[in-house]
Design a protein around this nucleic acid. Structure first.
Lengths: 282, 282
DNA sequence: TAATTATGAAATAAATTTTCATTATTCTCG
DNA sequence: CGAGAATAATGAAAATTTATTTCATAATTA
């Protein structure tokens, strides 16, 4: 929470002297961030240690740290927030809102990702005999993208957006196979079944889904991506964009783990596409 | 201006030692705001006065003031610069970098979009008898996503990621049809031909591609999405994410243009999915 | 009135800035 | 091209500023 709000909130839990500081800060926070502890103490007519104690009371490490928080609160024009599209928005407005919301989602998703889990996923992926990506609907797009990415790595990789194919593939999986199941809600019955089948057949199942969902319970590894709830009817699901970014992360981790020699191969794939392109003149 | 951008900008006007500090700061600004001048100096392998001079060079009063600016930059929502993944990055580091770069791309893409062109595209799409989305490789994913989105609108929509199908479809297009051709580079020969065929057969061709590319010349409407050049080998193409956001924008514009009655229909589609899901308990 | 809590003066500690000598780097002129 | 002067960059150490701790005292509460 914004520290300015916090001060305003806790105003009545403060002692007399602390309230004096609080008032000075609230009345002109932008001055305070440039003031020393001595200056602030003098302005509030209290002693320096009191200011210091006040800072600690607000869960900061001390006065300098407090100023940092304050500065951030001030800067925070709350730039990337989920702004909802409105019926009467112009093209300019809804474009802005959608991009901002998307960025807000990415921001949120990044925070919710656990580097350890990513590491473990990359571990598992690099060791896989075969990688499968399954998704339905919007998540099929993500699986499709994952296919494109991992295909370049010259590893056995498949992708299905068809329930039956997914089932069959899952049943045929074996030890050493990795199945990546993608579903934002994690509540799509058929996908949960697919995950469960794959697991029964000794594949390692990585779920890109919401933590605690039915799907997550069938997975060996859960990469949970939080995004703002999709409340708005107009608002498109930004979950898939966060998932795509996560695919990028996994693919990057994969490349890094595989080392230099492997990257030459990557370059080769890139180059092989050249002849299908018009030359650049610049 | 944001002080992080400023540092990145003036990087080549710095002296050797100053650049060292700059790099440490850019690589992990959020750590720096909690570090003392001594700690930062040590990390950059230079002396404390040099750090101090560096701060002053950037028009701050000194190190504490500099940290304040930095803190604000970080809070400010736009710390997003395209940071390249490094060979020795930890999972945490490359995850951060990828998300940041993605956000930076979105920021850039948003700026490059022209609301008038979006408006015109939405016009054309709402009036279409049939909408086709074509893409290859990474752009196929975007076309795939567009299919998902527009399919919900209950309009005739198709998507192909196969050159031959695209050609046939393009040849069979007629007046009133809209063909959306997606290609980041706009240099993929077969796609350029598809666009040209569609245009010859009286379809309106919307290109989601780079301005000035061969593909753009075959299009009636060009939605150009700028993203940072894809120089890094590890760095995944964020172009497709910007394109996806653009699809969201078009879909949203479409919904808004179609009005209230139309949105009821949208809700119906959403509801129809419910039975395939596990119920939520909360 | 005792116990607790809040407060500030002074001392201490930490961090930052200044000063100044040394070391690189750049420029000038033979 | 190269020697040496001029300039700029850098860091060690000192000085200063700033923040924190300690501890005694005052205010408040039980």
């Amino acid at each position: 929470m914004n520290i300015l709000e916090k001060i305003a909130n806790e105003l009545d839990t403060f002692s007399k002297s602390e309230r004096k500081v609080a008032e000075v800060i609230l009345s002109s926070p932008s001055t305070v961030i440039h003031a020393s502890i001595a200056a602030l103490a003098k302005q509030a007519n209290i002693s320096e240690p009191t200011v210091n104690r006040f800072c600690r009371r607000l869960d900061t490490k001390g006065y300098p740290d407090f100023k940092l928080h304050l500065a951030q609160s001030l800067a925070n024009g709350t730039p990337y927030v989920n702004r909802h599209v409105d019926e009467n928005d112009t093209a300019d407005e809804y474009t802005d809102k959608i991009f901002e919301s998307t960025m807000a989602s990415l921001e949120l998703a990044r925070k919710s990702l656990d580097a350890n889990v990513i590491n473990r996923s990359v571990d598992v992926l690099t060791q896989a005999n075969k990688i499968s990506f399954f998704g339905l609907g919007a998540s099929a797009v993500v699986a499709h993208d994952a296919l494109n990415k991992f295909f370049r790595f010259n590893v056995p990789v498949v992708y299905f957006d068809d329930i039956l194919m997914q089932r069959m593939s899952a049943i045929n999986s074996r030890q050493g196979d990795v199945v990546v199941v993608i579903s934002h809600t994690g509540r799509t019955k058929s996908l949960v079944e697919v995950a469960s089948l794959a697991k029964e057949n000794d594949a390692i199942v990585i779920g890109i889904t919401t933590a605690g969902s039915p799907l997550s319970k069938e997975c060996n590894i859960v990469l949970s991506v939080d995004v703002a709830e999709d409340t708005d009817l107009y608002m498109p699901m930004s979950s898939r964009i966060a998932q795509l970014a996560l695919i990028d992360v996994l693919a990057t981790g994969f490349t890094l783990r595989r080392g230099t020699k492997f990257r030459d191969n990557l370059k080769k794939v890139k180059d092989s596409l050249r002849s299908s392109r018009f030359e650049r003149k610049d």
